[in-house]
Amino acid sequence: MSEQDITYELDDRIAWITINRPERRNALTRHNMSVDLPDTWLRFEADEDARIAIISGAGEFAFCAGMDVKERAGAFQRSADGGASEQTRETRVSPRANGVTKPVIGAVNGVCTGVGMQIVADCDLLIASDNAWFSDARTSVGLVPALGAAELARAMPLHEALRLIFLGRHGRMTAERAYQIGFVGELVPPGELHEAAEQLARTVMRNAPHAVRLAKQAVWESLDGGLADGMANARAIAAANPTLEDVREGARSFVERRDPDWKLR
């Protein structure tokens, strides 16, 4: 059941949100992106007993390996054949996209790519295991990471974001590099990530809840000037993207384990 793919556990005012598909390196299905994650963020925001959330991936090897491309291959074909695209609905995977005003910590274990990058770029604080790494492979399967790109460009230096996007699956950012550029605030050994994330959350909770929430609002809204038009344009690009032939080719080549034959259309 998909509700088991995203788990929500409340422990002493901390909401632990876990992407729970370790057999697929926590890659997300369409239902996970369009229903499960948005519902979980809304649940956290409405939960009066929850002060802060920590989102992580099940297991030690992956936070989130992006979307489940094998599942998406059929969806791309249906979109190209004239079916309604679900990509716009699937962009509401991150906390701010769902109106979350409480603080959110991203605890990154292992690989974080594609949609996973979109989630962590929208977290308020990031902590990672020192074996974590980051990439955005969507350009390597013919997808335009429009919304993710807009969020990454605010979370890290512009040229670092563009490097990740342009290199796709052929490049990655190490945890150490992410720490050096300020994208990640703290690095810990893999076995200590859970404890360190909890300690960070409890330190935040020592402060006044309303002050933290209003400070978050002030900081994020200060970055939103001029962003609304950019995000609207990004949504239009994302909605049109699944109709491109190269999207279908990217998905097919991934499933068939071969190099893609791009048609540039």
Score class of each variant (00 low, 15 high):
G114P: 00
I54L: 00
E45T: 10
R30K: 15
D12A: 15
I119E: 11
E151P: 00
W262D: 08
G99A: 02
R51L: 10
V111C: 04
E45G: 10
F76H: 14
A58H: 08
Q180K: 13
A149N: 02
K216E: 04
L37D: 06
G230C: 10
P242Q: 07
E90V: 05
K70C: 06
L147E: 11
G182R: 07
N98V: 04
L125R: 15
A97R: 11
A211D: 15
P190L: 00
A239C: 02
G110W: 01
D68M: 01
A97D: 07
S253G: 00
V100L: 02
R13G: 01
V108Q: 00
G106T: 05
A211W: 13
A150R: 14
P260M: 03
M231W: 03
E198F: 04
A107F: 02
I6T: 10
D224Y: 10
A27G: 00
A234E: 03
T40A: 13
G148V: 03
A84H: 09
V255K: 11
S135Q: 14
A196W: 05
P260C: 03
L244D: 12
D47S: 06
N109R: 12
D229Y: 05
D261K: 12
Q87S: 08
A240E: 13
A84I: 11
W220R: 12
L42S: 09
W41S: 01
E60D: 10
E71A: 04
I237W: 01
E186W: 10
G142V: 06
A211G: 08
V255A: 10
L37G: 08
H194V: 11
S2K: 12
R252G: 00
H170Y: 10
P145Q: 10
A80C: 04
L152R: 07
C64E: 00
F61R: 13
I127D: 01
Q118L: 09
A107G: 00
D246Q: 07
